[in-house]
Design a protein around this nucleic acid. Structure first.
Length: 561
RNA sequence: UGGGGCGUGGUGCAACGGCAGCACACCAGCCUUUGGAGCUGUGGAUCUUGGUUCGAGUCCAGGCGCCCCAGCCA
């Protein structure tokens, strides 16, 4: 295939190409501007990859710049985690910077605007500022302090910086237009006073901190960023972004906005994710049910699958919800399945065990059966799996009275035990409650390996483990965190539709080759799904996380009835 | 409501005035020592009304719908 034809194109890439062609810029430099106030989630991947790939495709550079303008919310802990997650995705940057690196220079730029008569110190209270901003339909009112002279503004700004005034007593505002139809242009705040807490990098040096709008574009300019790519909610801020750079008479990057990525059955807002953690609804930021990269990693997702998902969801300006699109979890799952299908070793594990006794199999005999490690990859080779008289099979693979189209094990039916023998169910043993606790069967010695010399066929192949050789394992089954496609919608809020069954902990039996996994090892448990050894796995107790189930055609048939 | 953005199958993206296509999902079938994987096929979309044009998803005008903005958050 011609790689040229395959190259992804979208309105941003077209604009960048056009800017290079027209000479607006003669190089490409993008920036990744995470705020270190939470962990990265699947929605961030889109912005990260757009910034990274567009720089890369144009032989340009990417700068990782932490947007740390608000010490109240930001912590170093998050900086390290964000870098780690971004590296895991394969993103490379030329350097790491911080908005706080530019606090001095930015302050000088503010002084410049004050001297041009384009910024002023406002002594109004936050409430007054808010009240006079106007509404969507009514213009705002000028502050009584709007026309202070330059000298007074300079003096006051200097004293704000020196910490002479309490929090909230004054702000520096750009002098634009209180009647502007775009509310962002109604004399936006540039600096606010904040004595506490100390900034994670600058400590207590600063008593004033810049607002996003005052910091971001100016930092872009200082770093020579050509394309400042951001999500759709900043569209309304672009006039302000451009106004500052215009008045400052400095290098002007181009801001381009795109739709954010939301996903059904989960939430992306950092505030909401933080609540899930703080209220103990999940066990932490890396709880495998979370949409954070750390959680998905722990759950067994590969970076390749996530990148593939990102590529398949594309780039656009469509905003149907929350300034973006709502992608389907099903697509993400299809991406991991596709990736793991090619690379995961197959193993047999019984999640909900049911004992099977093969009455005509010699007591004490053990055979080593040859099993294929990965039918999609012959280089993965084969392994030996022990077989004996007493086995465990999946409870789901036996029915005393089978429903229509069920062709697994039931009294009188013959099935194949994968890589072993045909067995036929003869009778069952029940407990006092009437539950089947033991299934009895006979095997056909001539079917060793799984084929009958007489050519007879069985409709079903089921997996098993030898009871005497099995290892007990903890298996954590995950389901979607929320029961509604859009948990944010509706009266009761996102906490009102948490899925009570999002985690089910099982004690199952796994084959010997699964008895000592390393955390992070991924396998396909045959006929069930992809699993990943958890961080909690220990030498004496393997722990596995369900990454994603296999497609389950039978479950679909049964559900339909 | 003022301003801005956006409307293509269920979802996400293509089609750059010339036969509306791809992926996932869905449905049917084939195959199968994973009811996995793979393969084949079916159904289903241009918000609406007018206009321009030989020809409109694409251009123009009106309408409708959805998203974003009234933090000293980013």
């Amino acid at each position: 295939m011609n790689p040229e034809e395959n190259k992804p194109t979208d309105f941003i890439r077209e604009a960048v190409t056009e800017d290079l062609k027209s000479g607006r810029f003669n190089y490409v430099r993008t920036r990744l501007p995470p705020e270190p106030n939470g962990y990265l989630h699947i929605g961030h991947v889109k912005a990260f990859m757009i910034d990274y790939l567009i720089a890369k495709e144009n032989n340009g550079e990417l700068i990782l710049r932490f947007d740390d303008t608000n010490p109240v919310k930001e912590e170093t802990e998050y900086v390290d985690a964000i870098e780690d997650d971004a590296r895991w995705l394969g993103i490379k940057w030329v350097k790491v910077t911080y908005a706080s690196d530019y606090f001095d220079e930015l302050y000088n730029w503010a002084v410049k605007l004050v001297m041009k008569g384009l910024a002023y110190v406002d002594d109004q209270s936050p409430e007054e500022v808010s009240a006079k901003r106007g509404t969507l339909t009514e213009p705002g009112k000028n502050s009584p302090f709007r026309d202070r002279d330059v000298e007074e503004n300079l003096d006051l700004l200097e004293r704000m910086k020196n910490g002479e005034f309490p929090d909230g007593s004054r702000v520096l505002r750009a002098k634009i237009d209180m009647a502007h139809p775009n509310i962002n242009m109604r004399d936006p705040v540039m600096y606010r006073i904040l004595h506490e807490p100390p900034h994670h990098r600058t400590g207590d040096k600063w008593k004033i901190y810049p607002m996003y709008d005052w910091s971001h574009g100016q930092n872009d300019s200082m770093e020579g960023i050509t394309h400042s790519l951001c999500s759709l909610e900043y569209l309304n801020h672009r006039p302000l972004y451009e106004w500052f750079l215009e008045q400052l008479e400095v290098f002007k990057p181009r801001q381009i906005e795109f739709a954010r990525l939301n996903m059904n059955y989960t939430v992306m807002s950092k505030r909401k994710l933080l609540r899930l953690v703080q209220e103990g609804r999940v066990q932490g930021w890396d709880d495998p049910r979370m949409p954070t990269l750390r959680a998905m990693r722990r759950r067994g997702y590969t970076a390749e699958a996530i990148l593939d998902f990102n590529q398949r969801t594309g780039v656009s300006k469509v905003a149907t919800i929350n300034s973006g699109v709502m992608a389907e979890m099903a697509l993400l799952e299809a991406c991991v399945r596709e990736d793991l299908n090619k690379r995961a070793l197959r193993r047999m594990a019984v999640l909900r065990p049911l004992k099977v006794v093969i009455d005509n199999y010699p007591e004490g005999q053990v055979e080593e059966m040859d099993a294929v490690n990965n039918p999609e990859d012959t280089s993965a080779g084969t392994r030996k799996v022990p077989f004996s008289k007493v086995l465990y099979i999946e409870q789901d693979d036996f029915r005393e009275t089978p429903p229509p189209k069920y062709y697994r094990l039931f009294p009188g039916n013959e099935v194949r035990l994968r890589y072993a023998y045909f067995i036929k169910c003869t009778h069952v043993v029940k407990n006092d409650a009437g539950e089947v606790i033991e299934v009895h069967a006979t095997y056909d010695p001539s079917t060793r390996g799984g084929d009958a010399p007489d050519g007879r066929k069985v409709k079903s192949t089921i997996h098993w483990v030898s009871a005497a050789h099995a290892k007990e394992a903890e298996i954590r089954m995950y389901d979607r965190l929320f029961t509604k496609e859009d948990p944010e919608e509706g009266e009761e809020g996102f906490l009102g539709c948490l899925n009570p069954n999002s985690l089910t902990v099982l004690t199952g039996y796994v084959e010997p080759h699964l008895s000592a996994p390393k955390a992070g090892d991924r396998f396909q448990f045959e006929r069930q799904g992809y699993f990943c050894a958890d961080l909690d796995t220990a030498p004496d107790k393997p722990v596995f996380n369900l990454t994603v189930t296999l497609k389950d055609t039978w479950a679909k048939i049964e559900k339909r009835g």
